[in-house]
């Protein structure tokens, strides 16, 4: 059951700018087929906020002390609807009663509805962006919950995949996944989720969300590659942390926690207190987040003083290609075979 190797990702929240290029890259490559219009295998949410699906952190699932926990089934609309626009009726008309807007009327939720809303109170407001994909967990709650055995973890790279031929759309996986990263296709009646761009990885091409990220946020590689940045960030420096580790699924997507400018006292003078409350960060990343943040600050200070820091240099990644481990192929060079594999999956 355990995989021989595990593909993992480290997402640097200090470099994420919330531009959603990853979301678009994923959307245009994977989730434009029928029944998938409202799916976002990759999301970027502003934290604090409800996230996507709306309120997912309160929906349960995962394990506690090894025991599967009940989870809620997210409602379709909580993922955000792919609004269609009355482009035909509006542009068209110059008539104010046909202003361009969603056909279904005024929306009250969307996948990025909370963008830049943030938390705290001005001037001590705080916010950061948090991209999410399937965590391709080492102990996937979805896999354990599937009565059909339709979910499996690939031996060669640990990618968690749903076999759509076996899936009957029971959606137990959706309840069990504490990250609510599984979607239901109402047209085909099966559950679908991020496939870690497996067809791209098989050709040596980084995932679309990694390679197309202009913020250079995502490191990609095998977790056991001791020379790679992922191993360094997760194990050596311990600055890359799993999101909600309390669910015990052992995610393989890790996050560099966010820094923020200092907060202000009542007169508006800067004080040393962290703008992002530590207890909020701990609620996301567990108790290890405090030391991780401190190490990042200390290493940055070292750099500022003119010193060397392997950690900072790793995070900077001056040579972009260093971020992707063995996945260094340009997709245009394998465009033909790449797409063939997409079709094998679909067929």
């Amino acid at each position: 059951m355990t995989s021989k190797r595990q593909v993992a990702m480290v997402i640097d929240l200090n470099k994420c700018i919330g531009c959603q290029t990853c979301t678009i890259a994923c959307k245009t490559q994977w989730t434009n087929r029928e029944g998938m219009e409202g799916m976002w295998w990759n999301t970027v949410s502003t934290a604090p906020g409800e996230g996507t699906p709306k309120g997912w952190e309160k929906m349960g699932g995962g394990f506690r002390k090894g025991k599967a926990q009940p989870g809620k089934l997210p409602k379709q609309g909580e993922f955000g609807t792919a609004w269609n626009f009355n482009t035909d009726a509006a542009l068209f008309q110059g008539d104010t009663h046909n202003t361009l807007g969603p056909i279904t009327g005024d929306p009250d939720w969307g996948t990025n509805w909370d963008e830049d809303v943030g938390g705290g109170e001005y001037p001590n407001s705080f916010q950061f962006y948090i991209p999410r994909i399937c965590n391709h967990c080492t102990k996937p709650a979805c896999m354990e919950a599937c009565p059909r055995g339709a979910i499996f973890k690939r031996e060669e790279d640990g990618i968690v995949v749903i076999n759509e031929d076996h899936c009957r759309g029971f959606r137990f996986c959706q309840e069990a996944c504490p990250y609510k990263e599984i979607y239901y296709n109402t047209v085909t009646g099966v559950s679908q989720k991020c496939i870690m761009c497996a067809p791209r990885l098989e050709e040596g091409v980084p995932t679309a969300c990694s390679r197309q990220c202009p913020g250079r946020v995502r490191f990609l590689g095998f977790l056991d590659d001791e020379d790679g940045p992922i191993h360094k960030l997760v194990y050596k420096y311990k600055v890359a942390l799993a999101l909600h580790p309390e669910y015990e699924t052992e995610p393989n997507v890790f996050y560099i926690p966010p820094l923020a400018p200092p907060s202000f006292d009542e007169e508006g003078n800067p004080i040393d207190e962290d703008r992002i409350p530590l207890d909020y960060l701990e609620s996301l990343f567990g108790k290890e987040v405090g030391p991780a943040v401190e190490l990042l600050k200390a290493e940055k200070a070292k750099k500022k003083a003119g010193g060397e820091s392997d950690l900072m240099d790793t995070l900077i990644a001056r040579n972009w290609m260093d971020m992707f481990g063995p996945f260094t192929t340009n997709p245009k060079d394998v465009a033909r075979t790449l797409e063939q594999r997409v079709q094998n999956r679909q067929g």
Binding site: E37, A82, N84, T87, D88, A89, L91, F92, Q93, G94, D95, N98
Partner: peptide, 17 residues
């Protein structure tokens, strides 16, 4: 539809989600 008030697009994608 890009110019007329009452027009209807002849493209299937305009009629499909």
């Amino acid at each position: 539809p890009s110019v007329s008030k009452t027009a209807c697009s002849l493209y299937e994608s305009a009629h499909s989600s």
